[in-house]
Design a protein around this nucleic acid. Sequence first.
DNA 1: ATAATTCTTACGGGAAACCGTAACTCTTCC
DNA 2: GGAAGAGTTACGGTTTCCCGTAAGAATTAT
Lengths: 221, 221
Amino acid sequence: MIKKVLIAEDHESVNISVEKTLEELGMTQTDYVYYCDDALARIQKGVQDDQSYDLLITDLSFIKDSRVQKISGGLELIPAVRQVQPDLRIIVFSVSCIPSTIEMLFGQSDIDGYVCKGRNDAKALKEAIETVAKNQRYFPRHLTQKIRQKNVHDFTEYDIKIITLLANGMRQKDIPAYLIEEGTKPAGLSSIEKRLNYIKETLEFTKNEQLIAFCKDMGII
Amino acid sequence: MIKKVLIAEDHESVNISVEKTLEELGMTQTDYVYYCDDALARIQKGVQDDQSYDLLITDLSFIKDSRVQKISGGLELIPAVRQVQPDLRIIVFSVSCIPSTIEMLFGQSDIDGYVCKGRNDAKALKEAIETVAKNQRYFPRHLTQKIRQKNVHDFTEYDIKIITLLANGMRQKDIPAYLIEEGTKPAGLSSIEKRLNYIKETLEFTKNEQLIAFCKDMGII
DNA sequence: ATAATTCTTACGGGAAACCGTAACTCTTCC
DNA sequence: GGAAGAGTTACGGTTTCCCGTAAGAATTAT
């Protein structure tokens, strides 16, 4: 039974409608926070006071502003929360729809639901909450297909690291030194080239610029 | 006096809270659409039936899906709408917060308000609607400062065209031919290089990849 | 332990991008 | 009409990136 819900979402407008959805489901005991640090603090307090939350609905990306935060986004928040309250149910509510990230969240962080923001997201969120309330997992329908069809490249952490470096303006030839410094392998320039080529080939891209644009669109970086 | 309002916004969850905000302001005659083409059609119909809208609240970026659209986003929708109904009030409600785009919208398209999605966006939107109802313009407060400081490069249409081509995977050396075909000037490779260099220099970027990433972040392309 | 396989790296030729300079064209002003 | 100036383009040298091949290292199997 879900009673106490915490919403972690920086967009007030989204917050409002999530709250409304919860109301419609008869869940009136809702709190909302605009920052990840606040979310973790609330959950910690809930556990301490023996009034722990039943469900966390969280975004992944949070806008940075003047308030400096330890936790910068949902991807960091979720593991932190898991440590504090392992039995908390978690639904992720985000614009980004990257199969590999979603799979990772279900696998590693054991989240209970994922809803992509977009057309019909409110209905989907409602469904998700209802499903999770029944102790089931909610997996975005259209994604089960997407994950099957492997024409979409599955970005590994390594891929994301390289692409991020490029997007930050690092020259390809300088990346090996950086990776060695960081202890990431493989670090050879050829390996990096090869990997980038492979990614571009599978996605039928010709240039790095195109890849960067794609990754930004997909919310991968 | 604002009575009839159209909301063009692809995220259902945002739509719901915008509607709620309008309700709180006593505006119950609201329609909402998830696609730009629908928005234009509704406005056209309103004008024809002599039941035109008083206010349009629109997002800028719309997710592409299976439904093919003529108008892909708010930046195209707004001028099209202006042609159909020049006196319509327009408030843009978007995540992207690029001073030059906002200035352009106020200047060229004569919009009445701009609200950035984020923390407190619902309150800001409410303020904006109230302000516009009083026949005043609503300009995001924190942006007046940002626009003053000109360290941010002002992207021209030409810039955006080139950068978009790069992001689509076109090789730099192939761009001149394309621009000549299109009738855009200057088309020389040197001019393109020079312009890209200038942009990168002012933004203190080193590589095209970085520029693409930046433009995607800012919603410029 | 050795062979086979896979993964990683090094190297080199060629293409593209980068960058400065100089020539060219077009407007503007006298 | 001619000169000055800004804007555009052409060209050449350098760097970086691209891409294929082959050598080397690590892992697994025999």
